[in-house]
């Protein structure tokens, strides 16, 4: 398939997906819309983690904590009369700054050591959410988080709030697509693949590591700021380590380091368990088995399967072209 053909198919797939996301919820029940909203919100957090882990190669088990920080920021501020947009801006800035600081250990340690540092941060954040009653409401959390009015339009209904989340997801997707296609994206990949060589080519790995953490964490915060009004209640268990692992799974299952990976991964993690509910008490067991089978078959995730197929075709075509070129040179030789 030519590059033009691939682009056309990609655009067609995108158009179908966008049309589905806009029109399908019109016929959904409340719960269906709620689940789809949750997918949109979690996709934003997974996109952030994909930037940190998938592109820049920095292991993080703290993304759930940043969702929590964003959610508590939004809950505290909006219940005190702040508009959600202002709360979102503050959550973004706060998580960016904390994410930047969390990036410093990554300059010293890598891989599972870094995973443990971020895991410790996640535990610390959970303890703050649970124990600091004066700020977070402790184990009872903060309830009655209001949904915002955007340009005078109330988003109290599930459908309207879903469209708001979808709009924010679209903005995030465009911004991150621009980032990963810019020289920054190339530098992130270089950082992941070979930081020593990257540094020898002038890539300031220290700055890029910090930026990867800061931007990824800020997107976690944004996701949390949208989560709070969606659920209406923020409480500590929602942002425990399980959420970080779940987000990690979304990135890995979707395809770490692929732009589309988090969209597909979040769909698998949020929607698949719902679709398997007809199995009643066995649904989570089957879900776990499916995830295990997928990762054994394709460690690069669902998008990795498609990519492998495309790379295989491309390599085959290039080999055939080289062989043809070699044959024509031999034929011309005296």
């Amino acid at each position: 398939m030519t590059a033009k053909g691939r682009n056309f198919l990609g655009l067609l797939g995108l158009a179908v997906a966008v049309a589905f996301l806009i029109f399908a919820p019109l016929s959904f029940h409340r719960y269906g819309i709620y689940i789809l909203s949750q997918w949109a919100v979690m996709t934003i957090a997974a996109i952030g983690l994909n930037l940190t882990l998938g592109y820049a190669g920095q292991v993080s088990l703290a993304q759930g904590a940043f969702v929590g920080i964003g959610a508590y920021s939004a809950a505290i501020l909006t219940t005190h009369g702040w508009p959600l947009i202002a709360a979102i801006v503050l959550a973004l800035a706060l998580c960016f700054a904390i994410g930047w600081l969390l990036g410093y250990p990554a300059l010293r340690v890598q891989h599972h050591y870094l995973a443990f540092v971020t895991l410790a941060f996640s535990t610390l954040a959970f303890l703050v959410f649970r124990n600091e009653l004066w700020l977070t409401g402790g184990t009872e959390g903060i309830d009655s988080v209001p949904r915002p009015s955007i340009f005078g339009l109330s988003t109290t209904s599930h459908l309207r709030y879903y469209y708001f989340c979808l709009f924010v997801l679209a903005l995030v997707a465009l911004a991150v697509l621009g980032l990963v296609r810019s020289p920054w994206g190339r530098a992130f990949v270089a950082l992941r693949e070979n930081p020593i060589r990257a540094m020898s080519l002038g890539v300031d790995t220290r700055r890029y590591v910090l930026m990867a953490f800061a931007i990824g964490s800020a997107l976690g915060g944004l996701s949390g700021a949208l989560y709070a009004p969606l659920v209406g209640l923020v409480e500590p268990p929602a942002f425990a380590l399980t959420l970080s692992f779940n987000l990690l799974m979304m990135v890995i299952v979707g395809g770490s380091g692929y732009f589309v990976g988090p969209f597909v991964g979040a769909m698998t993690a949020v929607l698949l368990p719902e679709w398997l509910r007809f199995l009643e008490s066995y649904y989570l067991i089957l879900y776990a088995l499916l995830v295990m089978a997928l990762l054994i078959y394709s460690p690069t995730g669902l998008v990795g399967i498609i990519d492998r197929f495309l790379v295989h075709r491309r390599t085959k075509a290039a080999s055939a072209a080289r062989a043809a070129l070699g044959a024509s040179i031999e034929a011309k030789a005296p």
Partner: peptide, 25 residues
């Protein structure tokens, strides 16, 4: 960088010499 194209490997090798970090974004 095996996962980048030959051209992208070369662009990467010089991109940090172009402008500032912000202008590259």
């Amino acid at each position: 960088f095996p996962k980048l194209s030959v051209r992208d490997n070369l662009i990467l090798a010089a991109q940090e010499h172009q402008g500032t970090m912000l202008s590259r974004l």
